[in-house]
Design a protein around this nucleic acid. Structure first.
Lengths: 192, 192
DNA sequence: TTGGGTAAGTCAACAAACCTGTCGTATGAT
DNA sequence: ATCATACGACAGGTTTGTTGACTTACCCAA
């Protein structure tokens, strides 16, 4: 059996001087984060699965519901850019949601080719049910971790994302610190 | 006087006194976390996709490689419990990895029904290539965020996970604080 | 007004990665 | 001897993703 890992069982670290030891620690930190991203994502998304199964919907539907609810009035193209899937994949999900009365489409005001997406009342209700399940999980985590930890959590998560996603988050986060930078342009809903 | 909540579409805040406003803030916090988990997971896992595509492997293969590398000597059942997929799904991935020489199977010492999983040299090399891509992303995030933020990040992520996953993490984290709590029982590698 | 580019929908065909259910085989435990 | 366990394998199905080609409707600028 290849001895690829440290002898964790109480012995000394077999590695040499502090330099490589620090290197090992940094690498181990990264691997821990890998583990955690997997588990946290698995369990967080899994929290809503019971409800989705009941309705014959999948996680793809949930993602669409979530982001449409976050930014009512967004276009199909906007949603495509966020989800990073193809038009086909989204179309399947979207037509299902429209057919079942969860999502409404309105022609764009300034560009009538666009179909602006928003949740119907039923859609909002469903999204809320799904959200509540995940909220429970997150509430526990936030309460146990405390405020500063939550701030740290956000900082790291932001750093992991691509610039485009970071920009999205910045705009979204402006909702919880409204007094900041009044010179910035207003956070308008996407309405075209 | 700045309103306590952004007027997202120009109208007045329909909400009442500070109590419900706080409630709104807490909810908005949760929704931000939803967004961030999606983006961070999407971009973090996506970082390794180029290499995987070249080899005709998928993310499922990467996940298996990762966890086998983390805990060499684990059984198929162990891996199944971590990934939470069915035996079939894992078998497909695992046979591919074994056939291509990335993963080795050895009969268990104390229980010869088991097939203990470990990475071959090629498997370790591949896992490292994949890891390096993700490491870059994470290193930037950690550097930008700083040490305390990383600690906060971990606290929150731990809270989001299910107890079983939290237990796994505790064991894994003991590797980066080896001197702590020497009275605790040894974290043995999984070898049966 | 005509023509080029864009937003979106649609159809066909396909692939990856899951799923359920069932069966078989070797092995361990009682 | 019997029953349980760890694993592998087969059959058939779903969800979610993919590419490519085509159409419709619309915006905009020459």
């Amino acid at each position: 059996m290849p001895e690829t890992r440290p002898a964790v069982s109480g012995g000394l670290d077999p590695r040499g001087p502090a330099g490589s030891n620090l290197l090992f620690l940094r690498e181990e930190q990264m691997r821990l984060a890998q583990d955690m991203l997997f588990f946290a994502y698995r369990d967080f998304t899994g929290a809503a699965d019971v409800i989705l199964d009941e309705l014959g919907l999948g996680r793809a539907h949930h993602r669409a519901l979530h982001f449409i609810g976050r930014t009512p009035g967004m276009t199909v193209g906007d949603l495509l850019a966020i989800l990073r899937i193809t038009k086909q994949s989204l179309a399947r999900v979207l037509t299902a949601l429209v057919d079942q009365g969860y999502v409404a489409q309105l022609p764009g005001r300034s560009d009538r080719r666009q179909r602006l997406l928003s949740l119907t009342d039923a859609g909002q209700a469903l999204e809320r049910r799904l959200f509540e399940r995940q909220r429970e999980r997150l509430a526990v985590a936030y309460r146990e971790a405390g405020g500063p930890a939550v701030e740290g959590f956000r900082r790291v998560m932001r750093g992991v994302m691509e610039p485009a996603a970071r920009a999205y988050m910045e705009q979204a986060e402006s909702a919880i610190r409204p007094a900041a930078r009044p010179s910035t342009q207003p956070n308008t809903q996407i309405v075209r």
